[in-house]
Amino acid sequence: MDNITKKLMQRSESTRKDTIGRAISMTALILIAIVVVSIFVFVLSRGLSTFYKDGVNVKYFLFGTTWNPSVTDPATKKPYIGALPMILGSFLVTFLSAIVATPFAIGTALFMTEIAQKRGAKIMQPIVELLVGIPSVVYGFIGLTVVVPVIRTIAGGSGFGILSGTIVLFVMILPTITSMTVDTLKSVPRHYRESALAIGATRWQMIYKVVLRAATPGILTAIVFGMARAFGEALAVQMVIGNAALMPHSLTTPASTLTSVLTMGIGNTVMGSLQNDVLWTLAMILLIMSLVFNLIVRAIGRRGAMK
């Protein structure tokens, strides 16, 4: 009896292993949390210093239409740092590419899951996965050598601009949206399909009225993920958009995005100067936007789960 009590009071070997395992995974978690938090703190402190250290008006920054940090505005004695052209540019390429990509992505996903499952799995799946894996510089290079000249021929001008950026981003986010939509469609229970057909739905009615409806939250999530990718993409966009920080008046004139201005400028400014700080502010906007995209995805997921 005493022996058993003694044994029970001691920590067993398995409990000890359990504790070690938990400690390891907790450490990993804490490490990642620290990294994320420090990124936020760093970007925020840098980005906000534009406003409190350099005394720039937030409204002026967000809605000003002239971007030229190295030149001082004689009227306000401040550099031209209106970020609206880039903010608009970023949102335009993001939304346009998502609008163009979504129908193609849903069509492809429906083909892969509902119409030709075997061919879908054999041919389309690897193609989509391959598209995800292509480095963005390759997309950008193809955009530069193929898309831009085509636009130049058709629309005139230089060929650089929002339209070229949209086309390149469309190809880049297509696989993201497609593969996530495929996963969503696959997770629609088989019995929805069977019972729709058993009531006398045609295959199209089944897809349109039941499968797509049941999959709507997932598809929206896929689109938002695609948009997040488009919003954050720097290199490929930078190669085709023209990088002129001007208000976008046309889809085929050079424009710029937050990311393209960031990558172009960050190496050419001195740390701590206003010219450098405003770039951090752009990075802060990017970070906040990706947070917003994340929250949207979560909100959609929660609303979808409630149904």
């Binding site: 229970p189 019995h191 929805y192 069977e194 019972s195 729709a196 058993a198 009531i199 006398g200 739905a201 045609t202 009615q205 009225k209 039941v210 409806r213 049941a214 149904k307």
Partner: peptide
């Protein structure tokens, strides 16, 4: 008509579920 082993209403309202077939027509 066919009724399956698992109860399988669609993720719509009860009303929309019942008239699903009629709507198709």
């Amino acid at each position: 008509g066919m009724v399956f082993q698992q109860p399988n209403p669609f993720p719509f309202s009860i009303y929309e579920n019942v008239i699903f077939g009629l709507r198709l027509d």
